[in-house]
């Protein structure tokens, strides 16, 4: 019940009185420093509702830091962030209900079965009608036959598929992906891409950070580049070709040293 209310509230706030739709993510002048080092240096961007934005960047560019701040588990040094018009700092619990994160780490417990892992996370998010949802989603990711097996016995690809199920179980409006392709074989990667394509809908916004050029460009509506904590490139997918983007990307990466 509580979840439905929050969702309605978030969705209603997404369109304000003037008719201008509030973006799903608004980041302005975001700064995160570790000691004297800038992990993020005045980063600003918006992600519209339903949009798929991919941010590319080499290792150490600040991608994971960005995801951690957006997912409310880390705080910014300065700058402003709103997710559906809410501040992640003040409304952490409300916002967390609407966020699903898929990272290179699966957040799964080895000693629990696939089903138990989903039940655990489903209960943490107070998902309604949980048994039916688990049944459905576990079939969707093709793990129905293995649902009673411990995650320890799963291959990396299977674990990542279960991780997708974990992130989607509470039907989040915002999906944050942090290098989801790391460690996946060809087959599993294709499966993940297929999934991400299917998960796109009018109400679901996706932000992916990666250094995997092929996968990232394919899915995106918009593409950006982050190097040394700065957003140096931001364009619509329709305005670029994969080949020209590849050159642009390497140019920026080289410049960043």
């Amino acid at each position: 019940m509580a979840e439905t209310n929050t969702k309605n509230q978030i969705l209603s706030q997404a369109g304000d009185a003037t008719g201008n739709e509030l973006p799903a993510i608004r980041v302005s002048n975001l700064v995160k420093t570790f000691g004297n080092k800038f992990a993020l240096n005045r980063v600003s961007f918006d992600v519209k509702k339903g949009e798929f934005l991919t941010i590319f960047g080499p290792n150490g560019a600040g991608k994971t830091t960005l995801i951690r701040i957006l997912s409310t588990i880390s705080t910014a040094t300065s700058g402003e962030i709103t997710l559906y018009g809410l501040s992640p700092h003040k409304h952490a619990t409300q916002i967390r209900r609407q966020i699903g994160v898929i990272a290179h780490q699966t957040f799964l417990y080895d000693d629990l079965t696939a089903e138990e892992n989903l039940r655990f996370y489903g209960r943490l998010y107070s998902v309604q009608g949980l048994p039916a949802k688990i049944e459905q989603i576990i079939t969707d990711v093709g793990l129905h036959l293995r649902r009673r097996d411990r995650v320890r016995t799963f291959s990396r690809g299977m674990q990542q598929r279960l991780s997708i199920a974990r992130a989607m179980l509470h039907d989040p409006a915002l999906l944050l992906l942090d290098e989801p392709y790391t460690g996946l074989d060809q087959h599993a990667s294709e499966m993940l891409s297929g999934w991400l394509r299917r998960l796109r809908s009018a109400n679901r916004t996706t932000l992916m950070v990666t250094h995997d050029l092929e996968r990232g460009v394919d899915l995106a509506d918009r593409i950006a580049i982050l190097t040394n904590g700065k957003l140096v490139f931001d364009q619509k997918r329709s305005q670029i070709t994969p080949d020209s983007f590849r050159d642009t990307y390497y140019e920026f990466v080289e410049k960043s040293g």
Binding site: T72, A103, Y109
Partner: peptide, 9 residues
């Protein structure tokens, strides 16, 4: 296992 992040999310 990175689960701490899962709990914190």
């Amino acid at each position: 296992k990175g689960c701490m992040q899962g709990l914190m999310l």
